[in-house]
Amino acid sequence: MNALTKTPLFDRSAGKRFGKFALYAFLVVFAILQVFPLLWVFDYSIQKTGDLFGPELIKLPLVPVWHNYARAWVDGKILRYFINSSIVVVSSVLISTVVSFCLAYATTRMVWKLRTLAAGFIGLGMVIPIHTTLLPNFIWFNVFGLINTHVGLIIPYIAFTLSFNTLLFAGQLKTLPRSMEESAFLDGARYPKILASVIAPMAAPAIVTVLVMTFLTNWNEFIMANTYLSTDDLRTLPFSIIRFQGQYSSDYAVQFACMTLVALPPLVLYFFFSRWIMSGATAGAVKG
């Protein structure tokens, strides 16, 4: 399938073994660099706070203090915030996926006058930084009573993922033959049906990719959630870390436990869906 895998990087057999060793050593160093910080935080999340201030370079949790997690769970309001995150993220991901799918379909497969203009407009969404809406949205969203509501987060979460998703879908939809819809159309099917049962199954890989990537983006979003929400019971998961800084500013172990808990959901999701993120990157890199 690809050319590089079989190309020997080190031809001369003398240096071959050493070369291979050096190569792996290099990769392992980078791998450590990428995951060590996480392990460090986890390590001290199951020890007493005082251990962090100890003289050792790294202290191993010989007697794990799991109690830190109990406190992080309760006082970090992990469950409450997790549910809130789920409400906001699941609805914004579903809507964003459907809407961007429709946009991509209309801009790649249908023929209309303003098509290029619309595509350009959608592309603009990739460039406008979300932060430029942080200030005015207070006034504008407040007109509709959307500040301090989940809907007030869901709408920008959709808006700011639409462009990238549309682009991703467009890449996939361009490659499908037009005869697909034509024969369904002649069989008497209408748009909703054509889209749902003819096009969508063909674009299934792209749909999964969009779902996963949008999920990660919105799940990890912080600044809008932090700015727009003021009622504690509405907040989303990343906030629990901030909450801990004040409440447990002296208890680093509980803070670390909280960080670990917040890091877990995307990590779990990633390990189940990493294949789709990879293929999303392909689409993004080649067509982006």
């Binding site: 809407v99 961007s100 429709c102 946009l103 379909y105 209309a106 801009t107 249908m110 619309a118 407009f121 959608i122 969404g125 406008i128 430029t132 809406t133 200030l135 005015p136 949205n137 006034i139 504008w140 709408i155 920008p156 959709i158 808006a159 700011f160 639409l162 462009s163 549309t166 748009y191």
Partner: peptide, 20 residues
């Protein structure tokens, strides 16, 4: 197909920039 997406973008991107 197009209006919902464009409407959301206008509502959450373009109008705020106008206010700004």
């Amino acid at each position: 197909l197009v209006l919902p997406g464009v409407a959301i973008m206008v509502f959450a991107l373009i109008v705020p920039i106008g206010f700004s």
